[in-house]
Design a binder for these strands. Structure first.
Lengths: 307, 307
DNA sequence: CATTTCTCATTAAATTTTTTCATGATCCAA
DNA sequence: TTGGATCATGAAAAAATTTAATGAGAAATG
């Protein structure tokens, strides 16, 4: 007798498949390997004796059977998370606070949608953004003035729990027709004699300085601007170079407003982590926040890689 | 990071737990061991950090968290089966027919509720009951005049697929104050010189004759009646003994209308199977029919044991 | 047009999860 | 208190899921 092998796992896979458009990306979203999903999907298709989707198209196309399961997933999964949140509340009086400290200027791009979703899911949790930018957000955690900090480096010495978020490429940005435009990528030396346009923050909060230029003793002329759009405007007007996350400027690149160049032969990558005091790390709403951030970033930002 | 371990399996367990009232019975309903469920439930309770139900009460009492999950199960499981039936229809033009042949008089007691549920789930399947009682229902299968037969014995020689349904006790029924009433159980010899009241069918369709009396050359005087209630009326009026499934007469026993006695030291048990042509055995609606019969019987008939 | 890259499938192996088996504890009723 | 029923638990077995490694095919790139 054939038992129903369908589990929520499969529905989660189908939903991720649709949201991400391909098996490999869905695997990344689910923290599994592509192979695992491939097996999972094959088993499902065997069980139902019907294909669930068309692999040879981007994004993949679902078959009628696949669509029906997807419809099921959409009906079920939100109710599952809702129930689990209810139970978390039942088990432990779930009315905490979440004060978020942000060190990185551009982070608000992806943080805001995540925060909106979080508010929807955890209405009882008091949510705040610790205003201003902080040189050492982890200090705020230790002093219990924030509950979660978005940081770009782990410090193993700190008594803090780090949730990995994602990795992304930092690209150098040049004006159209800039002398360096022909290069396949920029080397650290290419920055000598250039003006570097950055946010007004200390050097060690800028990956380009901390990881690339400072170690080699290179210290270009600096100019700062608060807003990404202003930095780009300055680059386009040939006032200098900038180095920013690719996802932060993707829409400008699409319009050829400025020209991106990899930094170093294999590119420069930045990482982001959510840091929180160990005592809060296993709070359901804290874990859920991280999940939301990862999901919404993965779906909204092009070219990032989940950690 | 704690991933949600909740799967449909767990919800099915919770629902079975409520429907059956105890962990062991739920295990039987799900074709698992009591131990498996015990582990499963412990893991769930660990995950949520809250008990799901109160074990030391019959039937078990659900905790708020348990109730919340149960509510989820009730919302989800019907939609899952519905979706799976839709997919079965999509995959294979799912408009078959199901003609049921029944050899056993009392079977209609449990068959009717199951058939009602089946009609609800598979409206396209044409459902019929092959009228009258048939000495050899498997013959009807072979001649393609029926698609499914309820039988009480497997015949390995037949080219037929048997789905086991359940096992039950056949008890002898005596009038109040009958000379044999004091006995803890009846032996085959006790039937010598008695009148045996049965349905009007051949001996080898009566378990009491086929398994107990005929092998020992005992052949009591016979009297027949079509209806269970008539048989019981005759027993109560001291016209003889009967031997019937306990579940078929439970309500009369509850009212002390007649007195039940085990047949033989360890009781006489009967079994029921659903037989169908091998070609139909893996049709989704056929499998589902068997599932429905097993579930509804288990929940409605007291003292049966699923096979 | 060759080459590289990306994506998915497939096999075998590793790992994890689930289930069973065997047994013990507890409770209830006779 | 004994027997019967129910549930818990630890260890072993079985099953499932997942990963690793690799190959095949399509699409993109030069």
């Amino acid at each position: 007798m054939i038992q129903s092998i369908l589990e929520l796992r499969h529905l989660r896979t189908l939903a991720a498949l649709r949201d991400s458009g391909s098996v490999s990306r869905a695997a990344e979203l689910l923290n599994l390997t592509q192979s695992a999903l491939s097996h999972q999907l094959r088993l499902l298709e065997e069980q139902y004796g019907a294909p669930l989707f068309e692999r040879k198209s981007v994004p993949i196309q679902f078959s009628p059977a696949g669509l029906r399961l997807l419809q099921l997933a959409d009906g079920l999964l939100p109710r599952v998370s809702e129930a689990e949140r209810d139970i978390a509340r039942l088990a432990q009086g779930m009315t905490g606070q979440l004060r978020i400290a942000v060190e990185c200027h551009t982070c608000f791009d992806w943080l805001m949608p995540a925060i909106d979703e979080f508010r929807r899911r955890w209405p009882e949790v008091e949510l705040d953004i610790v205003s201003g930018f902080h040189a050492d957000p982890v200090e705020l955690l230790r002093g219990r003035r924030a509950d979660l900090a978005i940081v770009s480096e782990r410090d193993a010495a700190e008594p803090v729990h780090y949730f990995p978020l994602f990795r992304f490429e930092i690209v150098a940005l040049l004006a159209q027709g800039h002398p360096l435009e022909a290069r396949p990528h920029l080397t650290p030396r290419d920055f000598i004699g250039q003006t570097l346009i950055t946010y007004p923050v200390p050097d060690d909060m800028l990956d380009i300085m901390r990881k690339v230029l400072t170690p080699r003793g290179i210290n270009p002329t600096r100019r700062t601007a608060e807003l990404t759009i202003v930095i780009l405007q300055l680059v386009a007007s040939r006032r200098g170079l900038a180095a920013l996350p690719r996802w932060a400027v993707q829409s400008y690149l699409d319009r050829d407003y400025v020209v991106p160049k990899p930094i170093g032969k294999s590119g420069l990558s930045g990482e982001l982590f959510a840091a929180c005091p160990p005592s809060l790390a296993s709070q359901p709403f804290m874990e859920d926040f991280v999940v939301i951030v990862r999901e919404s970033s993965f779906l909204n930002l092009r070219g990032i890689e989940l950690l």
